[in-house]
Design a protein around this nucleic acid. Structure first.
Lengths: 248, 248
DNA sequence: TCAAAAGTGTTGTACATACACCCATGT
DNA sequence: ACATGGGTGTATGTACAACACTTTTGA
C-alpha cells in the first residue's frame, strides 16, 4: 500500500507526534506535516479530525499528521501518513503553508509543512472508518478546540479553498467523478456561502466546455433523473495553455 | 536594521550555505530558505541572483538564501537574509513552496522553504548594489545555470506570479507607490506576455475603484505628463470582505 | 396529481472589444 | 511640426442576472 518501512506499530502511532521526547530515529526532529482534509456533502463543508489516543496530547482533537522521515519528501510524507490513517490513495493533496512560529509547540521547536486534501463523497466512509482510532468528519462551522496552532491551519486552509475554488477547477475533487450540475452548484454554495441561480449557473459551467456529458443518468432519485457530467482534464489543460482562466 | 545577532561575518556569509560541513550552531541543519526576488522594468521581468563568492559552490549562480535559525520563523528568516543581502525592508515577501526532494543537494538532506518577493523600481539599485558580493538582476527569459533545484524554484515562482497577478492585486508591489496607468499596463504585458488595449485597460482598472488618483503628474517625460495613481489598500480590503474578486 | 428537481427561454443591463479620434507637451 | 504618449468617445457583440416557464419522474 505504501512503502516497506510501514509496520503495524507505525500505523498505530501515526497520530501526531506521540510522545515528543520519544521519536522514531528515521525522522527529521524539527519537521512534521499536518493535513486539512476536506469533504463536502449535504450538510456542508467538513474536515477530518483525529482524537489523539496516546502521547502528550491524548484525548485532544488535532489534524492528522506526523513526522517527516529523512528519506521522503514532504509530499510523500503527507500521502503516506494520510494513507496510513484513512486508507485513501491518489487524492488531491497540495501544499498549504509552512507554520513555523518559534513557540507553536511548548518546549520544542517543530515546524510543520501543512497540506490540504480534497476527498470525494464516495470515500468519506473509508476515510473515517479505516482506522481503529477516533477519526471524524467535523463541520468547519463548528470546530472543537484543537491542539497547538491547528485552528489557524484550518482557517488558512478554508481561506485558500474559498479563493482557489473560484479561480481553478479544483472543486471537482470534492465530488464523485460523475456528478450532476446541481451537485456542483451546491458544492459552490456550500464552500462560498452564497446562493446561486440554477439556470445561470448551468449555462456558465457548460459554456466553458470543461464538462463532458456522460451517457448516464442519476440513479435512485425520486424525481426526474439528471444527466451526469465528468470534468475534462484534457480540455482544461489545453485551454490553460492558451491563456484561459477558470473563474466562477 | 535586523536583529542583534547579525555581525559583519554573518553579513558576508549570507550567501547560501557556505561550506555544507561548517554550519553556524544556531541554525536548523535540515532547513534553509531561498527567495525569488522579482523586479520589473522596461526590459521585462527580472530576478535577483547571487554569485557565490565562497563555499562549496563558489562561482556559481544561485538564489539568495541561507539557513533558518532556531529562534526565528521561516518568514523572519527570509526577511533577515534578504535584508542582509540587499538592504531592503518591508517588501512584499510571501511563501512560495517547500522543496524537499530527498536528493536535491548532494550528500546532504536539506529542505528549503522558498519565498518570492516583489521589489519596486526605485529599490532596484539598492537591491543589487548594497552588498559587496556579486548580486545581479537577470531577465527571467535568459537565466544562467543555477545550482541545485534553483531553476525549478524560479519556474514555480514565475508560474505563481503569473497566476496570482491575475487574481489578486499584488502587481502593484512591482511598481513604485505612485504609478501611471501605462506603467501598470506594461507591467501586466511583461508578466503575462500579452499586449493589451490601452483605452480598455484604463477603464477596467479605474472601474474597480482600487486606484486613487494622486494630485500629481509624472515628471521629466518628453511628452504630456500622465496622472499618477496609488493603489488603495483600504478600499480593496473592504471590497474583499464583500466577496469582490480582483480579476484581470 | 402533486412534489421536486431537470432543464429551456426571454429580456434588460452591463461590460468587453475594437478602433477612431483629439489633446498636451517636449524637442 | 511632429513624435510620443495621455486620454476620450462610440458602435458592436457577448455575458450575465433575474425570473417565468415547461418537462420528466417517482411516490
Amino acid at each position: 500500500m505504501s512503502d516497506s518501512q510501514d509496520t503495524v506499530t507505525d500505523h498505530d502511532k501515526v497520530f501526531f507526534y506521540g510522545s515528543l521526547t520519544d521519536l522514531p530515529d528515521n525522522v527529521i526532529h524539527t519537521l512534521t506535516n499536518d493535513s486539512v482534509v476536506f469533504g463536502c456533502s449535504d450538510d456542508g463543508l467538513k474536515v477530518l479530525l483525529v482524537r489523539h489516543s496516546e502521547g502528550d496530547s491524548a484525548g485532544e482533537w488535532a489534524l492528522p499528521g506526523g513526522w517527516v522521515r529523512y528519506n521522503e519528501s514532504v509530499e510523500q510524507s503527507a500521502a503516506r501518513l494520510l494513507n496510513n490513517l484513512t486508507g485513501l490513495e491518489d487524492i488531491f493533496l497540495e501544499q498549504l503553508h509552512v507554520f513555523s512560529s518559534v513557540n507553536r509547540l511548548p518546549h520544542r521547536r517543530v515546524i510543520t509543512a501543512a497540506f490540504y486534501a480534497l476527498v470525494r463523497p464516495n470515500d468519506h466512509a473509508i476515510a473515517a472508518g479505516y482506522s481503529t482510532n477516533d477519526v471524524q468528519w467535523v463541520p468547519v462551522s463548528n470546530l472543537p478546540n484543537l491542539i497547538y496552532d491547528h485552528a489557524d491551519i484550518i482557517q488558512t486552509a478554508v481561506k485558500r479553498l474559498r479563493h482557489k475554488v473560484r479561480h481553478e477547477p479544483i472543486g471537482f475533487n470534492l465530488l464523485n467523478r460523475k456528478f450532476t450540475l446541481l451537485q456542483l452548484q451546491e458544492l459552490y454554495e456550500a464552500i462560498l456561502g452564497v446562493t446561486l441561480d440554477k439556470p445561470n449557473f448551468r449555462r456558465k459551467m457548460l459554456k466553458m466546455n470543461l464538462l463532458k456529458q456522460c451517457n448516464e443518468k442519476q440513479q435512485g432519485v425520486s424525481h426526474r433523473a439528471a444527466n451526469l457530467y465528468e470534468f475534462d482534464e484534457d480540455v482544461y489543460s489545453k485551454l490553460t495553455e492558451q491563456g484561459f482562466s477558470f473563474d466562477v
